[in-house]
């Protein structure tokens, strides 16, 4: 997005040209790039992006309006795909147009304006989404209360599940038991299980573990009076 000297001509209208700020007559030899929309009706030929950029750089507000009307739907569509709240999406879209206004004189490839806008929109929306991801709303009462007091029933169920899992692991054969315990080891120094076992070994282990847990469930009523 850095400003730089354009490395190619911006259309065929020069700053001193009297046609510059007039509506486009459609007589120019300039050919629209294939990526630009071609109207189905026989109205005036739309000016190419490069020409509009040059005119807007020279202060032609009408050219800017044409750029906005041509590309705003695309920018909005990209912004909507990020699933941002309305206010954040509108801020992001406005930021894209402010950045385009600022970088307009330095655009290296004004005929690729659509691609430039797409890239900048994705960058701005991505940043906005990242910002929202970090700002997870929390209940202020929970924060003000300091340490949370967990529900006794939830705590009991968690412990019961933990005990059941370990009973199921104890029922495994020694090799599987060792692998399962290594898998449960979440200490910082523990090497990830994936480095020590193959995908097949892990799949077989989980299958046996599930079967063992199912057996534990069936006998639970007998063992826990």
């Amino acid at each position: 997005m850095g400003a730089g000297v354009p490395d190619q001509p911006r259309g065929d209208i020069r700053p001193g040209d009297p046609r510059r700020n007039r509506p486009y007559s459609g007589t120019s030899g300039d050919v629209s790039p294939a990526s630009e929309p071609v109207p189905a009706t026989s109205g005036p030929t739309p000016r190419p992006d490069a020409e509009l950029v040059l005119a807007a750089c020279n202060g032609d507000a009408g050219a800017w309006e044409e750029i906005v009307d041509r590309h705003l739907p695309t920018v909005n569509r990209i912004a909507r795909s990020y699933g941002l709240p309305r206010q954040d999406r509108e801020d992001a879209v406005q930021t894209v147009w402010l950045n385009l206004n600022q970088h307009l004189p330095g655009l290296r490839h004004p005929h690729l304006l659509r691609a430039w806008l797409g890239r900048v929109t994705r960058s701005v929306c991505g940043r906005q989404r990242e910002r929202l991801r970090r700002l997870v709303p929390v209940d202020p009462h929970r924060l003000a209360g300091g340490a949370t007091v967990s529900d006794v029933e939830v705590e009991y169920l968690r412990k019961e599940r933990h005990a059941e899992l370990h009973r199921a692991i104890d029922a495994l054969d020694p090799t599987d038991r060792r692998v399962a315990r290594q898998y449960l080891d979440d200490s910082p120094d523990a090497v990830p299980l994936s480095h020590r076992t193959t995908a097949n070994e892990r799949r077989n282990l989980f299958r046996r573990l599930r079967r063992s847990l199912a057996t534990t469930d069936r006998t639970k009523g007998v063992r826990d009076p």
């Binding site: 997005m1 800017w64 309006e65 009307d69 705003l72 739907p73 406005q94």
Partner: peptide, 25 residues
Amino acid sequence: MKDTEPGRSAALAAFDRSLDRARTA
């Protein structure tokens, strides 16, 4: 499209050539 496309007025208002001489950091 012009009236219904959201963000159009903000996009049009972004047009400002007063700082074209400035360099972008």
